[in-house]
Amino acid sequence: MAGFDLLSDQGLRLDGRRSNELRKIQCKLGVFSQPDGSSYLEQGNTKVLAAVYGPHEIRGSRAKRLLDQVLVNCQYSMATFSTGERKRRPRGDRKSQEMSSHLRQTFEAAIKTELYPRSQIDIFVEVLQADGGNYSACVNAATLALVDAGIPLHEYVTSCTTVLAPPPATSWDDEKLEEGEIALVDASHREETSGSPTLTVAALADSGRLVLCQVGQRLHLDRMNRALERALQGCKDVRDVLDEAVRDHLANCGISEAASS
């Protein structure tokens, strides 16, 4: 097991959060002029940019064209300076390819794909600083960018990474000790790399439906339900933050356009 405890005796995490607390999310829509939709999202120290182009004509080979739905093309890229050790390749390595395909699968479920047959939507995400929950931050940023681009979604798709930490050795609460592992919502890099099981969930938050769920490490079946519940609650909390940002953006961009015209 890891050399340090993920939870203190008081039930606080390394960065002082409680187990069900998210990191501070700061986000902004419409940050760039070139893409059709763009967003910047900070989740604690994880900083992500997302840009959406489309829907537009299929680029490249016509063979990729789908007759009944839009083609969703995602690219996940990590800046070489985003991690502690310099990354050799910003994209194209196996991890990035996996991330790209996970993003595509997630957004194919969230976008109303049937509305744009024979077209293509590009979603590009760039991680500028990585501090855990990279996939989650990318999903959340890309959702905002899609909203900014005006692409119809079924509902917000949000994501949350959860780590199951062993309970502190000397717990202040005996009941908690019996419950076993404690789910830590919105894990940071140190929590992710501690060797404990990780559960990544992307969900349509309003209806509570799962879109993508990935478990790393061995996890006892008994723990699964509770961890999933916590992760879903995390997704709903993220959704509330994103919703507020969208409403705020819409209220303000209406004012600035009215003032300039």
């Binding site: 760039f32 800046a79 300076f81 985003s82 502690g84 500028l128 501090d131």
Partner: peptide, 20 residues
């Protein structure tokens, strides 16, 4: 960017470049 040894974000009009 705190993960880089030095960094800067520049905007000239709408052009943005980040250096790490």
């Amino acid at each position: 960017i705190s993960s880089a040894d030095g960094s800067a974000l520049v905007k000239i009009g709408n052009t943005s470049v980040i250096c790490g």
